[in-house]
Amino acid sequence: MDPQRKTAAGPMAPTSIKTARKSFAVTNTYVRPHVEKEIITVHTSTPQTEKRSHTAQQNQVYQGDVNVLSIIDTNKDIMCCKYTEDVNSIAAGFSDGSIRVFCCHTGTCSNTLVDDETRAYPGPVTAIKHRPVSKAHPITNMLLSSYVNGCIKCWKYKYDQCLYTIREKRQTLGLSYHPRFSKFVTYGDDAKLCMYDEEAQTQERAFYSSQQKNVINGHTSRIFACAFNPKSHHELISGGWDDTVLCWDDRQPFATRYFTGVHMCGEGLDFDKPGREILTCSWQEKDCIQLWDYGSCKLIKTIVPDNYASKLYCGKLVPQTNLIVCGGSDANILRVVDINMNITECCIRNNPGDVYAFDFGTTRRKPRKGTESYKKLSEIGQVPRVSFVTGKRLQTVDFG
């Protein structure tokens, strides 16, 4: 099956001819201090001095109970963001290949992650992740990042040090960690997913199509999203430009199941906690928020929460609630949506740019006991603080 899209739909970067010729390899690199200051303005409010904002700031429109915690404006486009393991800092990946780590309390840039390679062959940062924290996997103070030029770099961010680099011969468009094992998957423009052992820094296997005629068991275009089943050691899903979400099992050679009609341009795939339902937030005008049954790959429901049409890049289920958070283009909107009541609880519209990515921080508010209010039923107070990227801005908000 030929790819259904010929032109770029998502946040794409120009191809670097020099870096595209690099082969897969692992090296150890170290960085030099980077002193160039590129933060323009910083506006923060700590929990003690926090003020609730209901007015527009630089044409932003806030709907519902939205609390602005910090706004960091820079002079370069930001592509992705990720909280550190201790949730005290947040890392932002820029279009020039640099990563800056900001303190959540002050908004100051504490570390800048660049090395000679990212300076010589700059490529936008496509994803920043860290290994899920658990008793088996304690805090390591490390971040893993992917770049459009094919590099995957592991950073000891408190020391501005790159521990190792993996180079892929493709545009690497994202990565996802296994929820339990020290493994991660990368995906890119060659329609393949590659699984790596983090400790050995070696590739274990690849997921791709069998190329059989009239058989859909692999991707045929760029891959932008991947999510592991939280209740399985071996199962994962992926989506991209071929309008197909595929279900994989690393014990099988090719994809086992699929469903179509979902055009992915970002991290818009997520599992619910039991691993039985899939959320898709897709970059399309209609049916952009949908819930699917994982076992049968059948559509459960399509959610239309408001009248603001928005093609979505990213979306996640809020743990232990009936809410989702999603963001996209057109209205440049970030929403909190109640999927049971089919309404938008809170939103931020007219942001400076498309909302490419966001990440959950800590849950600062607990639902009040003994109240029979609508807010308690909607569970809005359980939504964690959210940091999202929009244009050249990194903004952190809280809801409820």
Rank of each mutant, 00 (worst) to 15 (best):
R5E: 08
P14Q: 07
T15D: 08
T19K: 03
T27V: 05
T29N: 14
Y30H: 12
P33R: 05
P33L: 12
H34T: 06
H34M: 06
E36S: 09
E36Q: 09
T41S: 09
P47L: 08
T49L: 02
K51R: 10
R52C: 13
A56E: 15
Q58V: 09
N59I: 15
L69P: 01
I72P: 00
T74F: 00
N75I: 15
N75L: 15
I99P: 10
I99H: 11
I99K: 10
I99N: 09
F102R: 00
C104N: 07
T112C: 10
T112N: 08
T118S: 06
A120C: 11
Y121I: 01
P122R: 00
K129L: 12
S134P: 03
M142S: 06
L143Y: 01
L144S: 00
Y147F: 14
Y147E: 13
V148W: 10
N149H: 02
G150N: 05
G150C: 05
Y157G: 05
K158S: 09
Q161C: 13
E168H: 12
K169D: 13
L175S: 03
Y177N: 14
Y187S: 02
Y187V: 06
D190T: 06
K192S: 15
K192F: 12
L193S: 06
E198A: 13
A200L: 07
F207M: 10
S209Q: 11
N214C: 08
I216H: 15
H219D: 11
T220Y: 12
S221V: 02
I223Q: 04
H234G: 04
I237K: 04
G239V: 07
G240P: 03
W241R: 03
D243N: 08
C247V: 15
D249R: 14
D250Y: 00
A255N: 03
Y258F: 14
F259S: 05
T260L: 12
I278C: 11
K311F: 07
Q320C: 02
Q320S: 08
Q320E: 14
N322P: 15
G327W: 01
G328N: 01
V337W: 11
N340R: 03
I343M: 14
I348C: 08
V355H: 01
R368D: 07
R368W: 12
E379V: 13
E379H: 10
G381I: 03
F388M: 00
T390F: 00
T390C: 02
L394T: 00
D398M: 14
